[in-house]
Design a protein around this nucleic acid. Structure first.
Ligand SMILES: [Zn+2]
Ligand SMILES: [Zn+2]
Ligand SMILES: [Zn+2]
Ligand SMILES: [Zn+2]
Lengths: 182, 182
DNA sequence: CTGCTATATGGTATATTGTAACATTATGAA
DNA sequence: TTCATAATGTTACAATATACCATATAGCAG
């Protein structure tokens, strides 16, 4: 998972084909442990298992697809159980929900300052329509411009999640698109 | 419906409580007629009825809610019929779908140049969480900043629809929120 | 440790949103 | 008119998400 420090303003890059994804997952899982510990949140076995399953790629996964994956690993669950864990993980800012596709993916931003999380941050997602890979970008940069618009309209922003759809570099280059490059 | 001319770059304002909404609907309906005529699209009775129903407010309406409204007016339809009309209207750029709530609302931008429509425009919606009213803003202003981000990531943008949630001025002012002010 | 309380999970049924497949009807052009 | 295409009707079903109540577990008071 592309690691970006809490207080630099460099942009996260789109996950590349050749990055070491085991870093992404281990970083996220250890961050999740620390974060929940500090916040007094209970990262139970079920929640941990589900988070790990989601973090297995930078693609978004549907709730029922997740159910199937967990069932294949021996964990037969009812939909409600998965949705409850998804709710928990989402409120903790450890995963995000793609509203354009009703699916869930792991947060790609590890904050060094463990007080912070991706809960009320302005979110900006780049979603490859071809391979499904998602790049998560610090949205604070666009906050000011959106602020211009919303202040003109005297609109009090509560939450902004911007989902940009298009094609990632890898899929642009391979003219045999659809190939999984995670 | 707040009228903004095609080639000025002023921002549409959030619909106010006291605006004359009959203007919004009549503007939209006549624009829809002209636009479909020019494009060779067939604005059938069903599609017209559904568009009119959606345009009755600046709030988003769910497909099944729409079904119920039409049934109350004597038109009993199957879901698929509504969804097909919704697809048509959406592809024509006459309505938009809120991805965060699976609901539909009428486009608030009438283009004087009838060749244009809200199909591939960058879209920016301000959605009041309290009363549901939606303000539609020209998103081209933020395109450049998003362009900065996406070009850094070498990501080819296909479509951007930005849904900003918060509270409109009217709901901020009335401390008895939830009141319908459309 | 024991019992109490709050939180998490299980189990069953159901609500909500959206489509597939095929028949019928309406439209527009030859 | 006749034919081809597009639109709508009809029925069944898929995909996503939640309500409700029972059970289990974790953390704490005594
Ligand atoms: Zn990775
Ligand atoms: Zn891709
Ligand atoms: Zn209006
Ligand atoms: Zn409002």
């Amino acid at each position: 998972m592309p690691h970006n420090h809490a207080h630099d303003h460099s942009l996260s890059l789109f996950p590349t084909d050749d990055h070491d994804h085991s870093d992404c997952t281990s970083n996220l899982m250890s961050y999740a442990e620390q974060f929940c510990e500090k916040k007094g949140l209970r990262l139970t076995k079920l929640r941990r298992d589900i988070l790990k399953e989601i973090a297995a790629s930078h693609k978004a996964i549907g709730a029922y697809q997740l159910l199937d994956s967990l069932a294949a690993n021996g964990k037969k669950l009812a939909p409600i159980s998965v949705y409850r864990s998804l709710d928990f993980l989402q409120e903790a800012g450890l995963i995000h929900r793609l509203e354009s596709t009703n699916s869930y993916f792991a947060c790609q931003r590890n904050f060094e300052d463990d007080e912070r999380a991706c809960t009320n941050e302005p979110l900006l997602f780049l979603i490859c329509d071809d391979c499904g890979t998602i790049g998560e970008v610090d949205g604070t940069a666009i906050e000011s411009l959106i602020g211009d618009v919303t202040s003109k309209a005297q609109f009090a922003v509560e939450r902004s999640q911007l989902e940009i759809r298009g094609m990632c570099l890898s899929c642009q280059q391979s003219e045999t698109p659809g190939a999984s490059h995670e």
